[in-house]
């Protein structure tokens, strides 16, 4: 088992943009950043990820930027009487000693006006701005167009 981890660590250290990277900023840890392959650039893309807060104070994700889209936005899919809508989220709360996931059917970063085709297997960087912890950049793994969960394991698995 140890050897597998050592090998994985080697593989992970090899590329400049590492798939399945975990990044930290202050007490926050961001992991499992993934997206879906796009058909062309006309349709909006999406980014999902997990944020953990080991600190004792609440924080919040305020905005995102990425070279992959001219108009990235935070959204939240909500169900009202069975009807799905996705209003703009002013912020995504990151509770103290807790975590929040951007995941299908909930909070997501929506990439409007893609600047590039999102090709399965590639990565692109996304910079997250938190209210208190500041900014951090994470590579996003582009998965299959039909993916519904991250292929990257949770950091403590």
């Amino acid at each position: 088992m140890k050897r597998i981890f050592a090998t994985l660590a080697l593989i992970a250290a090899a590329g400049p943009a590492l798939a399945c990277e975990t990044v930290t900023v202050g007490p926050l840890e961001v992991s499992q950043a993934w997206s879906r392959a796009s058909i062309g650039t006309a349709r909006p893309g999406v980014v999902y990820l997990t944020i953990r807060n080991s600190g004792t104070a609440d924080d919040a994700l305020m905005s995102i930027t990425t070279p992959a889209a001219d108009m990235p936005m935070l959204h939240q899919t909500v169900m009202t009487d069975g009807v799905a809508s996705m209003p703009h989220a002013m912020e995504v709360p990151v509770p103290a000693e807790g975590q929040v996931a951007l995941e299908p059917g909930g909070y997501h970063a929506m990439l409007m006006e893609l600047t590039q085709v999102l090709e399965e297997g590639e990565t692109f960087p996304v910079t997250l701005t938190f209210r208190d912890a500041g900014k951090v950049t994470i590579p996003v793994t582009i998965q299959n167009i039909g993916a519904s969960e991250p292929t990257c394991p949770s950091p403590d698995e």
Binding site: R36, R43, P44, T77, M110, L111, I145, G146, A147, S148
Partner: peptide
């Protein structure tokens, strides 16, 4: 609809 980035691909993959 196919311009739907969040729940439609999820539903389609669930159904698949």
């Amino acid at each position: 609809f196919t311009w739907c980035p969040d729940i439609c691909p999820t539903t389609l993959s669930d159904i698949s």
